[in-house]
Amino acid sequence: MYNTNKVIIGIIVFIIFFAMPFWLNFGKVEALPKPELPKEEKKCIEDTDYMKAYHMKFLDEWRKTKVREGKVNYINNEGKIYKMSLQRTCMKCHDNKEKFCDRCHKNLVVQPDCWKCHLAPEEVKKWQ
């Protein structure tokens, strides 16, 4: 092998770069934080699988229909009527932003801007 030193350095750099997912976890492997679900209520507004995947689209839709079209009520698949409100409907059951929203979001670098205007239930309590 020619230029052995340089080639070995190159291989090491290559491995370090592409094995980043492995060594970044080294020594701090723990279970992923699990979002805490409400204890009393078993059913969300729509199907759980749908909510897991599409809640951001769902909330975006709510925002548009409420703010731009002025509609207040949302009728779900089963015909039940809900008031479209993040703070008063969603956060009524999911009453802890840190233990519900943030656990997944922080873990997946999701940076939603909901809370730039809305208040989390924890904050609301502070002001009451």
Partner: peptide, 25 residues
Amino acid sequence: KPDLYAIKQLTYGLATFNPALPKGN
């Protein structure tokens, strides 16, 4: 949209050599 939490469970398991199929879809 997929279930991102389930995906992370899978990929994190792969990266930590502790692979398991997540419960989610």
